[in-house]
Design a protein around this nucleic acid. Structure first.
Lengths: 184, 184
DNA sequence: TTTTCCATGTAACCAGTTACATGATTAT
DNA sequence: ATAATCATGTAACTGGTTACATGGAAAA
């Protein structure tokens, strides 16, 4: 049996103060970005389904010149389902499809310079990611009136920072190991 | 434009000495497992397409009582395409959908014990993963007649080991941080 | 004046899994 | 006897993206 976690993500966002599809998308792109992302093409149909299933209510606000604004509020039934999902332990570790590792796996016949270039370009991307995480974290820490959610958001950022740092170190070690290898 | 890397994975496996869909699947489950996996439902149609596109040739061997064995051999054109893919730098860092982080993100109202339990269960899964990687790595290092691919396989394993280790450490730090938090 | 922000939504597509079907051989 | 191994494949489904359509308000 396959689980679909996206509806729970949206219910969770409702409890965190995000009520329109647009706001939820903004939030995801800004802060959940490194471990969860979805497109509008997924968000809007899912919100609709949550209402149909009684997990959320919609309050439609007409706006002149703009499409109706739909604010989704979690229902007691939705809260119940969210809670039970939050308590259920994760059963499968995430499998990331890693294109770089796939390439390295088949790189025996590649020139050293090509491999080193791959690693270098990857490391640069990791640096950028680290900086993004770091600045979000600092922003959260700086805030005068911190959200009650903030400590948990920081925890997830720490995960991103820790694993990215490990990847950076691996890049460096691997580069020097490749350097030492003799060209065949 | 979206890239589909799976055909390249299969071409790569051909160059590494895996020629039937079955062998490729075995290999993936055993060794590429932590950064790439696909099902037969993906493998067989993709192999067919690779032949249609002239990237691979099939040699069909009839076997009594069994389905025909189809051995796929990469063509010069396939080799060329594989090579150019291997040289193209990775443009996007993988985004892993992490269910644990998603749950933590919304865990402000959860009891501490529930959160600690989540972390504990996750850490155990990470341990298991580490042990799997470690034993594959040792097996590769032990081998008397090592494959020429082995050093590169070990590199990818090191990546898994490094990032998993970082995640384990994060688990431990986070657990004690949660412990210190006062229940609201 | 052009871009970005707000705000919703759908249809077509794509990658990939699951469940099913087939069936002999070999090891436990 | 039973399970695992070898070996191929398809149809239905699912989760998700992309491209498109709409259009006013505010900022650059």
């Amino acid at each position: 049996m396959k689980e679909n976690h996206t509806p729970y993500a949206l219910l969770g966002l409702m409890t965190a103060g995000f009520h329109t599809g647009y706001e939820m998308k903004q939030m995801m792109d800004g802060s959940l970005n490194h471990f969860w992302k979805i497109s509008y093409g997924q968000i809007y149909p899912t919100l609709k389904k949550l209402v149909e299933e009684g997990c959320a209510d919609v309050k439609v606000t007409s706006q002149e010149g703009r499409p109706d604004k739909k604010e989704y509020i979690i229902t007691p039934s939705g809260e119940e389902q969210l809670r039970s999902w939050l308590m259920k332990p994760v059963e499968d570790l995430p499998v990331e499809k890693n294109e770089l590792l796939l390439k390295l796996f088949f790189s025996r016949n590649q020139e050293k310079s090509v491999i080193l270039h791959q690693l270098e370009s990857y490391r640069e991307k990791l640096y950028k990611k680290q900086h993004t995480y770091q600045s979000i974290k600092e922003m959260l820490l700086r805030e005068e009136c911190p959200s009650e959610d903030a400590p948990f958001w920081i925890i997830t950022l720490n995960y991103g920072l820790a694993t990215t740092e490990a990847a950076v170190e691996w890049c460096e070690k691997t580069k020097s190991r490749i350097d030492e290898m003799k060209e065949e």
